[in-house]
Write a protein that binds this DNA or RNA. Structure first.
Lengths: 314, 314
DNA sequence: ATGAAAGCGCTAACAA
DNA sequence: TTGTTAGCGCTTTCAT
């Protein structure tokens, strides 16, 4: 029995080229001998490894876990594997894991809210899809932050809130820029000056967000409501308010983003702009997958949905 | 200039075998031409890919994200790459991604609270390290749940609590078994019958945990305190108590596990048994790394620390 | 100190 | 329908 025949059978290219009798024999023998094809050899020969790299800044943000799950699921359905890459290349600059991997074992990259290094943008670089970030001429998948922000602001407006603060992510990034722009636009549209509102920044962890929120809540011109860039920040604000004896939503109304599990665990639970992180991850993989097949898929913007709970609705 | 020389230089085996003048020339040329070694070819030839697979059940649990970060960091420092594998082999049974990968591109596996499939336990299978799970004759890294549980129970006892309920994870697993055993042992040691205590189960999500906690809190024989298998469950219980108007810790005291960020965001914040997930992930990788080098590293049990906050100490 | 040559396990073009 | 052959890009003897 020749190598060719075996290869044909085991890579599913048998029909029409190998008799079904031999095909069965091959499969039986393979099972019996515990044969496993060598992926490195296959990758070397065929130039494709069925693996995508996922480059990420913060693995620990709850939103990311769900995006990862979506991407991983879509990839595994397509017979691909996800390689996790820590976004440390930004620091070093030179020889990075991203570069080291780009030949041979990784077919393409998903960048999660991270900048794409120049080496991958040059001709000959592997295909890339960016998640939650836009860069000129790079395909992307992102969330509809504009729509979500508008819905949140209108909700607060309808409840009578006019002076609305913004509790911002210190992480930066386009997503948060969009939220800030939407917030400012809404205020301007209703005759308020965004520059006169109370705003503050925090990182995505409990200690920072509670501390920052405490300051915002003790501001002499405390607004009646806060738009928070994220549920983690919103939860910090609710915790700080409870601690300070400020009623939520009576004393201050709070809106977050993402509808993390956390949003239902605060007291009161959070009104929040929900996205579908699994869909985001899956869409990202699908775009990359299409590109790997030489297609030119369209960029995607995934919708948002406002979920109203106790932190605004009382 | 020959292939050999280039290979020697670029894999750092030049000293003593290649003149430093040629070595420099090689490096300069490589940089100029944008040369990247092909990882697949290297893996094929040398039989090692500098990649480890991380098999996991639930990517979205907050504790996992931090463990992942620890493992990923340790791996990347050792020049290895982490491939994420969804634990779906359990369902199918037969041809799984774990098996498919085990030849060629993956040198070894980290199993995170997941069972190791038989194919990897056979002779010839790749090295494996299990995290938070023990299986006969397999190397492991786990947390000191016994010590943590004992500390939590003694803390509650010192505060005067005698009837203590257990809010359990429905996920199963040895870790949670150990917590239950420790809980029961403490009660027996103080003359209480564990079987007469109030206990309940929940999955690790807000909706389930709040619903389950609500039932536990409305039990006619409600205990004065609950040991919760996890901060997510503890947070659910605090949320349910707030909703039902039961004071925490006056009406019911609550202890969790893991010291997630969440623990500081509930009102009141949670008393909890803290572990170091980054250290867990890093230790797991280090064990695997040692095994890949033919060593026989010792299994490790990582310590716990009780963090007292408002949910008990009020 | 450098180079020539073999071969890792696979796939694909070509022949039979 | 099956087999023969070449070669992917690297590392590693072995010669020079």
């Amino acid at each position: 029995m020749s190598q060719t025949t075996v290869s044909l059978v085991l890579s599913g290219k048998a029909p029409g080229r190998v008799s079904s009798a031999t095909a069965d024999a091959v499969r039986a023998a393979a099972r019996e001998l515990g044969y496993r094809p060598n992926a490195a050899a296959r990758a070397l020969r065929s130039g494709t490894a069925s693996a995508v790299g996922l480059v990420v800044r913060d693995v620990t943000h709850p939103f990311f876990g769900r995006t990862l799950r979506g991407a991983q699921q879509a990839a595994s359905e397509a017979g691909h594997v996800v390689v996790l890459i820590q976004d440390d290349y930004a620091g070093g600059g030179g020889d990075s894991s991203v570069q080291g991997l780009s030949e041979g074992v990784i077919d393409g990259f998903l960048f999660f809210a991270a900048k794409v290094p120049r080496s991958l943008r040059e001709p000959g670089g592997r295909p890339v899809v960016i998640v939650e970030y836009e860069q000129s001429r790079m395909p992307f998948v992102r969330l509809d932050s504009e729509g979500g922000t508008a819905a949140a602001m209108e909700h607060l407006h309808a409840l009578g809130h006019r002076r609305i603060g913004h509790f911002r992510s210190s992480a930066g990034g386009q997503t948060f820029g969009r939220r800030h722009d939407g917030w400012a636009a809404h205020l301007r549209a209703h005759g308020e000056d965004p520059d006169e509102q109370v705003t503050g920044f925090s990182a995505f962890d409990a200690t920072s967000s509670i501390a920052a929120a405490r300051e915002l809540l003790q501001h002499p011109d405390r607004p009646t409501a806060f738009l928070c860039d994220d549920d983690l920040l919103a939860a910090g604000m609710v915790a700080a308010a409870n601690e300070l004896g400020i009623d939520v939503p009576g004393g201050v109304a709070v809106v977050g983003f993402d509808d993390l599990d956390l949003a239902r665990l605060t007291s009161p639970p959070l009104t929040t702009v929900r996205f579908d992180p699994e869909a985001l991850g899956a869409a990202a993989f699908e775009l990359l997958h299409a590109r790997l097949q030489g297609k030119r898929p369209k960029n995607r913007v995934l919708p948002s949905e406002l979920v109203v709970r106790g932190s605004t609705a009382g």
